[in-house]
Design a protein around this nucleic acid. Structure first.
Lengths: 334, 334
DNA sequence: CTGAAAGCGCTAACAG
DNA sequence: CTGTTAGCGCTTTCAG
């Protein structure tokens, strides 16, 4: 098998413990001894067994990232931010896709605990039952959620200011003169979406009943957007604007509009949420609410690592990141 | 701390060894004993320590996935395929982003070995020096590459038929009547791209010198596509068609064309490679070469697991997946 | 079928 | 500064 610490200790004529100290950079080793150990290790191409180290120290230097689907560009961006932050701190990231499937979520969660990860980033436990939410809260590894859970749990969260984003989107559309607006959104239990909706609703209300909004729910991917838009279009040919719960849904919606022989924004205005890279590349360039995705991932890892290093003061932290309107060409004034 | 196997053994009145056998489903335990152990484990909400198990068995049930950037939708799709296959087999996936940075690649590779992963999927070691390629080949965990390395190494690979794809793209453009064609591609050392180029070249040659092609190299993301296209447009206003080395590059290229006040496909035809989801959603829908991305990820994991289970017969395997032309609206006949 | 014993490779007191 | 001694929690011979 592979070569072990004992091997290099033997070869260097020291005790394994000393070799360990030399390799891990702990103080308490004479420079000369350390050099010798390091030299032998390099010569023998020693690769420390982190599994063994993990067992001894109780730390795996691994974080779990549980998302619904990494193919959603929002999550790829979050994942990249998280991975970069983890890399800088010497941690690795375990990637899990759940499709929001409760049994997969539970499976992954338990599996991550079994692998003794030092922290878990998780998207959407909103759809989960209370008992699992409690399990999440009770466990002794730090968890940060990428969305607010429905109940009041003591978990840390990192989210964009979804309510504010919904409000901005709604106000914008109304200011442009739209009065019949469709909302294409995800499961109502998903707090990120429901808060966007609430913000949007507040904007409608501020318009004193002059605007009516039709909400359609579905999968929050492009296929879902496509289907929701088709549904909206068949039932309501008076809608002039649409608030999509995220950009990918907006992309699907645009396709549905086009297929119907209508045009964006001439016939229907569409606003998205997230500001994924493709939003600026698509035709027409998508007007959307920008949220700092990469930073969401970074922030989540920061919190996790801070909590991991100070197991005592694990007071939950809720970080809410700012959003802003990115005005491109998918919305027009009536 | 957490509750251990010993705890549940004590509670069930058996030896830890027996408890272990009961929990891992190994034969050699009376049904009644197993029931008892299982019951206690459930009651105490026992979570086995896989780190300890890993140390004892030498298996981590974890695979490493090393890509250049998960934000590239090609890789998200590959990752999803890999993750689903790993999940089915009870493995987890460690995600690493290298940006093709050699030092990051080496760092991650060593780190994965240190964590004793059971296999590694790696994208692009093409840019790496020979010594690292040998290190890859020598190590005793199975490795599958997502591209052909430049030298002849004994590593397994899973790739699309890049040459064929390039050939199809070239033939198609030429058949449409294009005679001055730009190629927007990645680093020449990256075999996936160089093979696409070679296939393209073969198609040009088949046209007996009637077509001239201009190749521009850059980053293979949308920003790179944008910049390469700008460069192409300033130097060569006679190009009527462009072969982008992947869809994301094509997206950036389209943007550059549009900004220039030209139109796709009216003024310049563009063909991509990959057939990522956005290709059908963008305007104009992108004509491209489809490759089975999800299946690439699946196949890579399949090979890894097969090799992991049979450490003896580790004969390298090269799987080449088929590609096909998806004709949409970004190319026109001259 | 089950218990006892040894060990996976490393770290962490504790002496010296 | 360095060696000795114990484990970390699990699996796995090997006896019984």
């Amino acid at each position: 098998m592979a070569i072990t610490l004992r091997d290099i200790a033997l070869e260097a004529g020291v005790d394994p413990a000393t070799a360990s100290r030399a390799l891990t950079g702990n103080y308490g080793v004479r420079a000369a001894t350390r050099e010798k150990v390091l030299a032998v290790a390099a010569r023998l191409k020693y690769i420390p067994n982190k599994v063994a180290r993990g067992l001894a120290t109780g730390q795996s230097r691994t974080l779990g990232l549980v998302v619904s689907d990494i193919r959603n560009p929002f999550f790829s961006e979050v994942a990249r931010g998280a991975e970069d932050a983890a890399y800088k701190a010497g941690y690795d990231l375990l990637l899990c896709n759940t499709d929001l499937n409760p049994s997969k979520q539970i499976h992954y969660f338990r599996s991550l605990l079994a692998k003794r990860v030092d922290g878990i980033i998780m998207n959407s436990v909103a759809t989960l039952d209370r008992s699992f939410q409690e399990e999440l809260g009770r466990c002794d590894v730090p968890v940060v959620l990428l969305n607010r859970p429905s109940g009041t749990s003591g978990l840390s969260t990192v989210t964009a200011d979804n309510f504010e984003g919904g409000w901005i989107a709604g106000s914008y559309l109304i200011r442009l003169g739209h009065r019949v607006i469709g909302q294409l959104t995800g499961p109502s239990a998903h707090r990120n979406f429901s808060e966007r909706s609430k913000g949007f609703l507040k904007a409608s209300q501020a318009a004193c009943g002059k605007v009516t909004s039709i909400v359609i729910r579905g999968d929050y991917n492009s296929q879902g957007g496509y289907e929701m838009m088709k549904e909206l279009l068949t039932g309501h040919n008076d809608v002039t604007a649409v608030f999509a719960c995220n950009d990918v849904v907006a992309f699907g919606a645009i396709r549905a509009v086009l297929e119907r022989g209508l045009r964006v924004p001439d016939d229907v205005s569409i606003i998205g949420f997230d500001d994924v890279e493709m939003a600026s590349l698509i035709r027409p360039p998508l007007t959307t609410i920008h949220q700092p995705k990469y930073e969401v991932g970074q922030a989540a890892v920061d919190i996790l690592l801070r909590h991991a290093e100070h197991p005592n003061s694990r007071s939950p932290e809720r970080r809410i990141l700012g959003v802003k309107l990115i005005e491109r060409e998918s919305c027009r004034a009536l």
